[in-house]
């Protein structure tokens, strides 16, 4: 599955999606950035409620396939800009982090 397909099946809001073809593999949930940095795998979907610019930098270094902001959180303006510059996919959902992770887990089976 790629990011575009994920966005479609989970009905995600597409805030910034410069790389829709990026393949998705598994997921990681976390808001503490160095946990994400240390544990997220290349290609993971990263579920978080953090919406500041540093999210784009972490997504770039950890090479996640996309960021999904849960709980209805929206990216702040600086995050949008940085994500655009650095080709980071930022999506969103109104689902709680728990529910979003549960759906993702089903999809990844």
């Amino acid at each position: 599955m790629n990011v575009r397909e994920l966005a479609h099946v989970m009905a995600l809001t597409e805030f910034i999606m410069p790389e829709p073809e990026r393949e998705v593999s598994g997921g990681y949930v976390g808001d503490l950035l160095s946990w994400v940095m240390g544990r997220a795998q290349n290609g993971n979907v990263w579920l978080t409620i953090m919406s500041n610019q540093n999210v784009a930098a972490v997504a770039l270094m950890a090479e996640v396939s996309c960021v999904v902001l849960t709980e209805g959180v929206k990216p702040d303006e600086a995050l949008r800009q940085r994500a655009e510059q650095q080709n980071i996919n930022i999506l969103g959902t109104k689902l709680s982090t728990f529910d979003a992770a549960a759906v993702l887990k089903q999809l990844m089976r």
Binding site: D31, L32, L33, S34, W35, M37, G38, M50, N52, N54, V55
Partner: peptide
């Protein structure tokens, strides 16, 4: 507040 400070760096 920005997500740093987990002591994992």
């Amino acid at each position: 507040d920005l997500g740093f400070g987990a002591g994992m760096g």
